[in-house]
């Protein structure tokens, strides 16, 4: 098999790689905020249950979580394994990344000086107005570097979908590598991820720059 054929075959999986990437961000970024708010809840039960879930999601391998979400329903309830593996893959990724984002959000929210809340309160901002208008925009700016880190990791983590045989780019590459006893598909995959992350870096850099107008 020529290098060109490899690249073309693997490119066919890029759409699925992108699907995992974008759908994971779409769901995990807002879900992470909900988790962060639950984690910071004044209700002790709510905050400790949330903390426990975060610790499980961060303390066990994503690969294991992928297997659990994909095949767990079969072993637990005898349910059929989802025909479209994208669904369990995105569920596992979104929940896992939400746990990480939640801790980043929490760090960001807790870093905003109490004086910002007090100034808003005296000026008559409601709790929701204070959060949405005063706190959140400042949090976003502060956490951008950490978010970029996670997004870059996510690009590479999409390759883990091979454990449940979801036909994304890396899974295809691995199959070619096995059938052709060649290392080249892995090199191709490495280049794909590198270029993908270059784009991510550029986009995130632009966003950070746009938030650069204040300190």
């Amino acid at each position: 098999m020529s290098l060109m054929t490899m690249i073309v075959k693997m490119s066919e999986g890029l759409g699925k790689t992108c699907a995992i990437f974008f759908l994971t961000l779409l769901f995990s970024l807002p879900l992470g905020m909900i988790v962060a708010l639950l984690r910071m809840s004044k209700n002790r039960v709510v905050s400790s249950v949330t903390r426990f879930f975060i610790s499980v999601l961060r303390g066990t391998p994503l690969m294991l979580q992928l297997l659990a979400v994909t095949y767990g329903p079969y072993y637990l309830f005898g349910a059929n394994v989802a025909r479209n593996k994208l669904i369990p893959v995105v569920i596992a990724f979104a929940i896992n990344y939400a746990a990480y984002f939640a801790e980043i959000y929490r760090g960001g929210i807790e870093s905003i000086p109490i004086g910002q809340y007090e100034a808003a309160e005296v000026l008559g901002y409601s709790k929701v107005q204070t959060f949405m208008r005063i706190i959140l925009p400042q949090v976003v700016k502060r956490i951008m570097p950490s978010i970029t880190n996670e997004v870059v990791t996510l690009v590479k983590d999409t390759s883990m979908a091979f454990t449940v045989s979801y036909q994304e780019m890396f899974t295809i590459g691995k199959q070619i590598a096995n059938s052709q006893t060649s290392f080249m598909p892995f090199v191709v995959a490495g280049v794909f991820y590198y270029v993908f992350n270059d784009v991510v870096d550029y986009v995130m850099g632009r966003i950070e720059k746009r938030l650069d107008y204040y300190r």
Binding site: Q116, A119, Y214
Partner: peptide
């Protein structure tokens, strides 16, 4: 306030 507490953004 002592520390102004303006909204920086």
């Amino acid at each position: 306030f002592q520390n102004f507490n303006l909204f920086p953004h």
